[in-house]
Structures are given as C-alpha cells and as structure tokens.
Write a protein that binds this DNA or RNA. Structure first.
Lengths: 112, 112
DNA sequence: TTTCGTTATGTTTGTATATATATAACGATT
DNA sequence: AATCGTTATATATATACAAACATAACGAAA
C-alpha cells in the first residue's frame, strides 16, 4: 500500500490567515531579494498578488513582519523584521514536525 | 497572543487524492442516507460534484469504498464497504491526533 | 528639479472552477 | 410493459479567482 498522508498547515490570528506555505515562501523571497517586486518575479506571481499577501500578513500579525520603504535609493524596498524572521523559523519547524508526525500515523492506514 | 494553528490533511495514492475532509464528509453522508443524491442534497452540493468526488475516491482506492446500484427498488443507491468504513475511522483518528499535536506546538509561536 | 525603481492601488481581461440544466441507462416492483 | 428514483454523463451557464495592464505616489541621488 503506497498511501501517503499530506498536509497543509497555517497560522491564524483572530480568524485571519497570518502564515501558510505560500506566505512563508514570499517572506523568504523578500528576505533574499530585499524587494517585494523582485520576490514576486522570483516566485512567478503577479506583483499585485504578492502585495496583497504581504498586506494581509502585516495586518494580521501582532507586530510588523516587514518594513517597506517607498522612493529613495533604488526606488525603495522591503525587508523582514526580526519578528518576521522568527515567525518563519517557527513555521518551518512546526511544519516539519507535522510531516514527521503524520508519517508515523501511516501504519494506521496500512493495517486496514 | 491568540494565534491558532490550523491544518488540512489528505491521503494520496499514487499522486491521486484519495481522502480529504470533504470526501470523508461525503462518505459519511452516503452512509447515513444510503444514496449519493441524498448525500449531495444534505451537503448542499450538486449531484455532479458529489458523483465526481465519489468516482475519484473509488478510482484511487485499492479496494472499492462504496457499492453503487442503479435501478431496482427505490431506483438504486450507494452504500459503504467495510473497507470504506475503516478508512473513514482511520482518517478521523489521524486528523484528530494531528490537531492535538499542533496544539502542543503553539507555544513555539507564543514564545517569540 | 529630473530621474529612477520601487511601493501602492484601481481597472480590465482571462481562466479555472462550480453550478445549473438536460438526458440516457438501469432494474426491482407493480 | 409502465413506473419510479437513482446512478451516470454531457453540455451550457455563472461565478470566483488569477493575471494583465495601467497609473499615481514616493524620496534619495544626480
């Protein structure tokens, strides 16, 4: 029996989605590129979609996850706060643990 | 911090989705009503959608999950096999365990 | 003060998905 | 053989979502 258990986890704050896999991916891309528009390009999603996600994240989070600047040298940019970086690490850790946990549960299906 | 960790799990077989929350919901409704059309009505989804889901389930599963009959007394119907019933129980068990596991992981976010 | 690439936002277009509608096949019961 | 409610399937319509396009605002630096 080659069944697999897959999962998607996400963090909510007051019934609003804060972080999921896609949002974490976006934050990582912002951290690497220093810019929301470059992050969107690297993920092959529209700038508008990326902006909407980031806006939703920052509105849901207790503390700012990024600091965005308009104009100036290079036109502006976006960078993660320490809080944002810590959230990413926590999410990845929990997600990985969840995968491992579910792998252990597989035998319950194989025994049927 | 009232963050919550939510999850969706599903079982795949050879890269095809076998069971998720919606599909399990459908199977339970079939078990209660004895009919695919009645199950669809009880879930407020179209018969076609319900049929497509059930068809996908039975094509992905190693053994039949339902036995469907056309014509005859009452026009026909659908009922779960023992294998189907066992799969539902296993899915619910694993899903519940996953929720409890993730609840324990919450402190990792609260400590940030 | 002009330039530049970025953030921020609205509007239009396109696509994928869900819904609605229609119809055939079926078989026990009458 | 006529009836009935179901399964099974196709087609057309509607809706939700994503993508594409366009444009304003911004501020450091030249």
């Amino acid at each position: 029996m080659d069944y697999k258990i897959k999962s998607r986890i996400w963090i909510e704050s007051e019934n609003n989605v804060l972080l999921g896999e896609g949002r974490v991916h976006l934050l990582k891309a912002i951290n690497e590129t220093g810019s929301l528009s470059k992050a969107a390009k690297s993920m092959n999603i529209s700038y508008k979609k990326a902006w909407g996600l980031l806006d939703s994240i920052n509105k849901s989070a207790k503390k700012p996850v990024t600091i965005n600047s308009i104009g100036g040298k290079g036109g502006g940019g976006a960078e993660l706060t320490d809080y944002g970086k810590a959230l990413i690490l926590a999410f990845d850790d929990i997600n990985k643990n969840c995968w491992e946990f579910l792998d252990k549960q597989l035998e319950k299906i194989e025994n049927i």
